[in-house]
Design a protein around this nucleic acid. Sequence first.
DNA 1: ATATCTGCAAATGTTTTGCACTTTT
DNA 2: AAAAGTGCAAAACATTTGCAGATAT
Lengths: 168, 168
Amino acid sequence: MDPTAAEIEQAVLAFEAFLREKRLKMTDQRRTMVRVVLDKRGHFTADELNRKLVADGESVSMATLYRALALLEEAGLLEGHDFADGQRRYERALHREHHDHMICVDCRAVIEFTNERIEELQEEVVRRHGFSMHDHSLTLFVKCDEWHGTGACARRAKIEASQQASQG
Amino acid sequence: MDPTAAEIEQAVLAFEAFLREKRLKMTDQRRTMVRVVLDKRGHFTADELNRKLVADGESVSMATLYRALALLEEAGLLEGHDFADGQRRYERALHREHHDHMICVDCRAVIEFTNERIEELQEEVVRRHGFSMHDHSLTLFVKCDEWHGTGACARRAKIEASQQASQG
DNA sequence: ATATCTGCAAATGTTTTGCACTTTT
DNA sequence: AAAAGTGCAAAACATTTGCAGATAT
């Protein structure tokens, strides 16, 4: 499920090709970011990525980080989302099928899902208006523990623990 | 389609009831905002609302405006959306059926649509996960003139003109 | 060589907040 | 009188930008 080391190096090369085509340059900072970003599971903010880089002893300035995030997104290695909380979130686009998101309004957990029929219907709506689809964003804001009646969000601790375990 | 004067006054009373229940107070500024907001067609930002109020000679400070927007949303008179461009947008919730949005990535035109089947499928997804739906947001980012091949967005002028005409 | 990068600090733009004063209840 | 609201200016916040010096091609 996670990209192998070889796949990550391949992505570094792909990014280099992308940069070359735009007459931009590959740098140590950008290489580092490709590697760290592709290694990351789940969604992360610019700030979270920065903290990871600092922890790894490979920090780059926020300016450079933001500039690189934009390029990585443009190169298709990263996908950005707006979940309406004032911070853009990213996830790697390698080894990931298209999916939509459910967010728990209590604990902010992100749960992914796909529904082929919904995708088709969206396409149909756009087509019927004579437009073409550029992108789409479907986010369901849910309460993930309402039916457990605990008041606090029962899944929160579990989700955080498993993310930490898998993340390092 | 637009609320009548009577309906707007009714909404003022409803807002007053909402405030009373929360032990908050009705003020001139809040009354003004209810009226202006319910009179507004389409989507607007805090800044656009402010300009309208200034133009009407009934301006309130941005601090008060933001505080009131939050209350109006809470009271269900207003609906807020995040279209991923850094500014929250609002629309009146009176006389409005639920709908989703298509945004032209070129001209930022907002086109509304509904699709009952998509709604049902969303509910089903949430139910299948054992959650309950709190809210949902479906936004399709489209190119509205791609098939007209003009390069510039053919509908933009038309849309802006008709919004101005209907808005005053 | 020269165009692009980086990091810093400063700017940006929207939204929020602390506070002294005013208004509603 | 007490509780809440207002406007102002300042703060907060994520993100962007100008610029001088560093680096990749």
